[in-house]
Amino acid sequence: MGLRFILVLLCCLAGAAHAEPAGPVPHKAYLSLIIDDLGQSLPRDRRVLALPGPVTAAIMPDTPHATEFAREAHRAGKTVILHMPMDPATGPFAWHPELPVEELARRLDAAFRQVPYTAGINNHMGSRMTAQPAAMAWLMEELQRRHKFFVDSRTSAQTVAAQQAQKIGLASVSRDVFLDDERTEAAIFTQLQTAISLARKQGSAVMIGHPYPQTLVVLERELPKLKAQGIEWIDIRQMISVRGNRATAAHGKDGVYR
């Protein structure tokens, strides 16, 4: 009886070893969300903090509630980043190509003082500024020194910001989808679906939106459905880790930013 049991067990194990796998292991699909232009209206911006997940709060330094809202976002457990104005943006903090590095540094210091608890920065506008290799190289070195990451909003195809970050190994990531260039609920929903499709295709997608009423309505309705769709919504710092500082196919070749 004992010998028969052993033989049967060995046959079962041999069969299991040659059995077909149950099916392909599904690929992970990650999404991260940044909401820009915060700090202007506390009632509006608090709706962002109420979104059900790890939204990143990008706060502008030249807004009336920048410091107060940064503290609120930090207390709410959200990642806070400095939404740094760059040319063609204007104002006392804005970076412009003609400014000397000493003035760039002064404006960056002042902006960080206005927005406490920052883990990193992304650019507000900046189509001209992010195309400046020397200034972007200086910025990435400065962020490395401060132990902060960089998110390239990619407001221009000529941006070299992520490229300069990658050169020195600074933790960084690039935006894939703008949600609300067109401020209608239908268009924003379509952009969200684009981001979901992209995440499924390439494994991850970084979305940037704004605290427009239409955007918040769509996000409040659709974000709770992500998990059921097989999408994992992760913090921007986790996204940087997931991507490992490598460019996606839309932003570079073989992981290297163009």
Results as ranks from 00 to 15, higher is better:
residue 2 G to F: 12
residue 231 I to W: 08
residue 180 D to N: 13
residue 66 A to H: 02
residue 88 P to N: 12
residue 51 L to S: 11
residue 82 L to D: 02
residue 107 R to A: 03
residue 71 R to T: 12
residue 249 A to P: 01
residue 60 M to H: 01
residue 185 E to V: 15
residue 169 G to Y: 13
residue 247 A to Q: 03
residue 70 A to V: 14
residue 239 M to K: 02
residue 113 R to E: 14
residue 183 R to V: 15
residue 190 T to A: 15
residue 210 H to K: 03
residue 53 G to W: 04
residue 51 L to G: 11
residue 40 Q to E: 15
residue 163 Q to W: 06
residue 16 A to V: 13
residue 107 R to S: 06
residue 108 L to V: 12
residue 248 T to G: 15
residue 244 G to M: 01
residue 3 L to D: 14
residue 38 L to A: 04
residue 256 V to G: 07
residue 53 G to N: 09
residue 175 R to W: 08
residue 41 S to K: 06
residue 10 L to N: 08
residue 122 N to C: 00
residue 67 T to H: 12
residue 34 I to T: 08
residue 14 A to Q: 14
residue 87 D to V: 07
residue 118 T to D: 06
residue 138 W to F: 10
residue 82 L to W: 04
residue 236 I to Q: 02
residue 126 G to H: 00
residue 137 A to V: 04
residue 28 K to R: 13
residue 194 T to Y: 02
residue 171 A to S: 13
residue 145 R to E: 05
residue 95 W to D: 05
residue 225 K to I: 06
residue 39 G to Y: 09
residue 34 I to G: 01
residue 132 Q to W: 08
residue 15 G to V: 09
residue 20 E to C: 10
residue 246 R to I: 06
residue 104 L to V: 13
residue 18 H to F: 14
residue 69 F to S: 03
residue 166 Q to E: 07
residue 207 M to R: 00
residue 180 D to S: 12
residue 152 D to F: 04
residue 25 V to P: 11
residue 224 P to M: 14
residue 67 T to M: 06
residue 36 D to T: 04
residue 215 T to V: 11
residue 157 A to W: 09
residue 230 G to E: 10
residue 193 Q to G: 12
residue 178 F to L: 10
residue 214 Q to S: 14
residue 17 A to W: 15
residue 125 M to E: 10
residue 134 A to K: 10
residue 219 L to W: 09
residue 241 S to L: 05
residue 120 G to Y: 00
residue 91 G to A: 07
residue 158 Q to P: 03
residue 84 M to W: 03
residue 12 C to A: 12
residue 2 G to T: 13
residue 86 M to A: 04
residue 44 R to I: 11
residue 255 G to D: 01
residue 182 E to V: 15
residue 151 V to L: 07
residue 66 A to M: 05
residue 191 Q to L: 09
residue 47 R to F: 07
residue 227 K to V: 10
residue 45 D to G: 02
residue 49 L to V: 08
residue 168 I to R: 06
residue 99 L to S: 04
residue 255 G to W: 01
residue 196 I to A: 01
residue 255 G to F: 05
residue 242 V to M: 02
residue 240 I to W: 00
residue 158 Q to I: 03
residue 245 N to G: 08
residue 7 L to V: 15
residue 186 A to H: 08
residue 117 Y to C: 04
residue 63 T to L: 05
residue 138 W to S: 05
residue 97 P to V: 14
residue 161 A to H: 09
residue 247 A to G: 10
residue 95 W to H: 12
residue 173 V to I: 15
residue 211 P to T: 07
residue 243 R to Y: 03
residue 32 S to N: 06
residue 176 D to W: 02
residue 16 A to D: 09
residue 11 C to V: 15
residue 23 G to W: 11
residue 11 C to S: 13
residue 12 C to Q: 11
residue 188 I to Y: 01
residue 39 G to R: 08
residue 58 A to H: 00
residue 240 I to M: 06
residue 239 M to Y: 03
residue 108 L to Q: 07
residue 13 L to R: 07
residue 99 L to Y: 11
residue 130 T to R: 06
residue 170 L to C: 09
residue 104 L to F: 13
residue 45 D to M: 05
residue 256 V to C: 09
residue 18 H to N: 11
residue 86 M to P: 03
residue 74 H to D: 02
residue 138 W to G: 06
residue 8 V to G: 04
residue 38 L to N: 02
residue 66 A to S: 13
residue 252 G to I: 09
residue 136 M to Y: 09
residue 14 A to I: 14
residue 93 F to A: 04
residue 257 Y to Q: 05
residue 47 R to C: 07
